[in-house]
Design a binder for these strands. Structure first.
Lengths: 211, 211
DNA sequence: ACGAATTTCGAATGCCGTTCGAAACCGGTT
DNA sequence: AACCGGTTTCGAACGGCATTCGAAATTCGT
């Protein structure tokens, strides 16, 4: 009953993810198109997920898990490399923002799902539980706190969290407001090269954690 | 013909602005509701603006102008206070992000128009000319470049533009992802006090412009 | 006061997401 | 092999949406 382990439920999620990646704008995603691509009918979406909104949320959650796994893996690697000393600050920052940057520039990644999802959360009521469950989930960001605290022991948890939040804002600006970033930097930075962009971000974020 | 200096065109813009401020989500804004509030019919929107989208864009542009005027006024004030010496860095940053922060916390301001507008630009095709005209307009940001360059002469235009862009990302994060900011800072910062928030932002942005 | 141009209106169009009852399908029991 | 309850699929609705368009109404220069 209403299971999402069902075969067509899976096909609906895959179709939705694929369409979200291809879609230039969120309005290109319609229940009818998803259904056709999944060889099902629009009512299957309501049946298995309750609504199209919740289908997208389920897909976004799946993609988020993949991205966060990559982030945490890089963080662990950075911590292990220097253990038992504190990890390298630049490396930690790169672990935080790197995966998003690389995904957003990789045309084969599912990054568009995430940007479409957050804009959908704003278009519909953001307070809805199936949105908050995903948006307010910051466990994967909290994992960075203890490491950053070892690097900058003079900052307390609030300071660290605030700086983390600022770093995420910078990342969003770069991944989501590309045209603005281009104009402000006079088209002089190669925004297609993830490593250049990450280095630029580290250059700006690292000083937040230094005296 | 299709003029937006018309009386009902004005009433449509006012109604649209008002509804956008009240609206919890963008989906609450419908052509019918706008028309009712403006004592007109939905077709009046198409007639005067071409589409609902373009009506919202026109309203957003109007609000943007008010916000940017405030920003530039603060910047000028900061420059004048120290002339002919370079202005105070903290004051320049406060001029850049302050108005947005204050507006976003002032329930009587039209700030919701701007956040709804940017999320609408993402929902519909972002490349459409009436979006780019507004989003890519960064003249009011460019005005900050020469002042920042005097403060940090070792940075070139690209560095300054990049840091400006990062500062704007931080601002967006704080104004638009409030619940995330709250969680990451353990609810320990009073996000309702604009001056506290601005001080926190200066604390993080200023180091970008120091050696 | 007339006529052309501008503005308003209301019905119709074609989308959209979702609902709902009937049909189809499935695995386990007689 | 026939049956059956639970699960899934389907297709025809429904109401709401933005927009179009021709006809009515209004405005304004003459």
């Amino acid at each position: 009953m209403h299971g999402r382990t069902n075969l067509t439920a899976m096909r609906l999620m895959d179709a939705c993810e694929h369409l979200l990646c291809e879609a230039e704008a969120l309005e290109d995603l319609t229940a009818r198109r998803i259904a056709i691509e999944a060889h099902a009918t629009p009512s299957a979406i309501s049946y298995h997920f309750g609504s199209q909104e919740e289908l997208v949320a389920a897909v976004a959650e799946r993609v988020y898990r993949r991205l966060n796994a990559e982030r945490l893996s890089l963080l662990r690697k950075a911590a292990d490399r220097r253990a038992p000393d504190p990890p390298d600050l630049d490396e930690v920052i790169a672990a935080l923002v790197g995966p998003s940057i690389r995904w957003s520039l990789d045309p084969t990644s599912s990054y568009p799902v995430l940007s479409h999802f957050t804009s959908m959360a704003k278009t519909h009521r953001e307070r809805a539980p199936h949105y908050r469950r995903i948006i307010d989930n910051v466990e994967h960001h909290r994992a960075f706190v203890p490491h950053l605290k070892r690097i900058a022991p003079w900052l307390d948890d609030v300071d660290i969290g605030w700086r983390l939040n600022c770093a995420l804002g910078i990342r969003s600006q770069v991944t989501r407001s590309r045209s603005r970033t281009e104009v402000l930097t006079n088209y002089s930075i190669d925004l297609d090269d993830p490593e250049i962009v990450i280095a630029r971000m580290v250059e700006v974020i690292a000083p937040m954690f230094r005296r």
